[in-house]
Design a binder for these strands. Structure first.
Lengths: 185, 185
DNA sequence: GGACACATGTAATCGGTTACATGATTAC
DNA sequence: GTAATCATGTAACCGATTACATGTGTCC
């Protein structure tokens, strides 16, 4: 699940530029379970090209730098599938939200409420993205459909849980004897 | 959610050594949403000590290196709460499993099945850990209870989804015209 | 006899982010 | 006029992992 695999994965869905790959990974279909920035994508693409796993074609444009459109090669596809065949690492979840939830008893209630709202907004944005993909896919790619549906399920669960149990967490913050009332400097 | 915050967070639950902090973060209560290794924990603790946010007390042992037991100071608590009060970054989910699911149509069915089994096993292990914490907590820490319950919900959802829809994903791999039958070298 | 748990720490390395550098076009 | 989108790329930096170094006690 390195940037390398990410580029290869996105290119199996069609040609793309570095700019588009980054967009796809931070706002598009792939953002739900991975992401990357320019600083890692451009070097990765250059390396993939030197290894013969992708090809580039430059499309000059007036005023802007030429678009460098990358295509995956047959070797690239084989290498990508090969990399998916070796045992995957574990899925990881990093959650600043849960760190706040864990310490709700030591935090001011507003902070806890804000954290819940943020997490909910984030989950709703992800859900919207996944739902949008649902309709504009008239030629359904089965793997992408399954993955999307799984993501929708997860996000719905998260949102429902926060709606049903968010108040309990705020109450934990309220009922605590407020031993440390924020950074009282 | 750096290693620094992680150490502080764990120390708010009681004194601990670097060794114990790492265990807690990779196998314990915190492993569900964060983790770290020795190479980052030991330097982080040394730095926290030099900043006065934790104190150390050495407990010599026969044969083994002395245990260095760390305690969080009042300044450490304040700094920790302060860090939790600033807007948290977004939760992130990195999923080698979903990358495989997305490309199920290009992969041999056994590989897909193995990936599902692995993901299920991982989720079951995390669930077990969370459930174990449930019983042995006779003096319930409310934030930790809420967080655990949320985690249990997520894991149950994941496991149920894989049980109910895993076969569909395997079928996607089976029904594909097998364009790339693994790395046929 | 070998693997594993305990226990600390450093050095090499790596994967990735952030900031910088450049610049036209379009929308508010 | 100013922000955002398009579009590429490099360099500095950083956080963290992996491997190394060392050593005992205990379980199988």
């Amino acid at each position: 699940m390195s940037v390398r695999s990410l580029c290869l994965a996105i290119l199996t869905f069609g040609d793309a530029t570095g700019y588009e790959i980054r967009k796809e990974s931070t706002e598009g279909r792939f953002s739900y379970f991975d992401d990357a920035s320019f600083g890692s994508i451009y070097p990765a693409l250059a390396r993939l090209e030197s290894e013969g796993l992708v090809t580039v074609r430059e499309e000059p444009q007036a005023g802007k730098p030429a678009r460098k459109v990358y295509s995956i090669t047959e070797e690239g596809r084989v290498e990508f599938v090969r990399s998916l065949c070796e045992p995957p690492g574990p899925d990881t979840y990093k959650s600043p939200f849960l760190l706040i939830a864990l310490n709700a008893g030591q935090l001011p209630p507003e902070i806890v409420r804000r954290a819940i709202d943020r997490r909910k907004a984030q989950a709703e944005a992800e859900l919207k993205l996944l739902m949008d993909g649902e309709k504009d896919e008239n030629c359904p790619h089965p793997g992408s459909r399954w993955t999307r549906e799984f993501g929708i399920g997860c996000m719905n669960f998260t949102i429902a849980y926060l709606n049903e149990h968010g108040d309990e967490l705020i109450r934990i913050a309220e009922e605590a004897a407020e031993p440390i009332p924020a950074a009282a400097e």
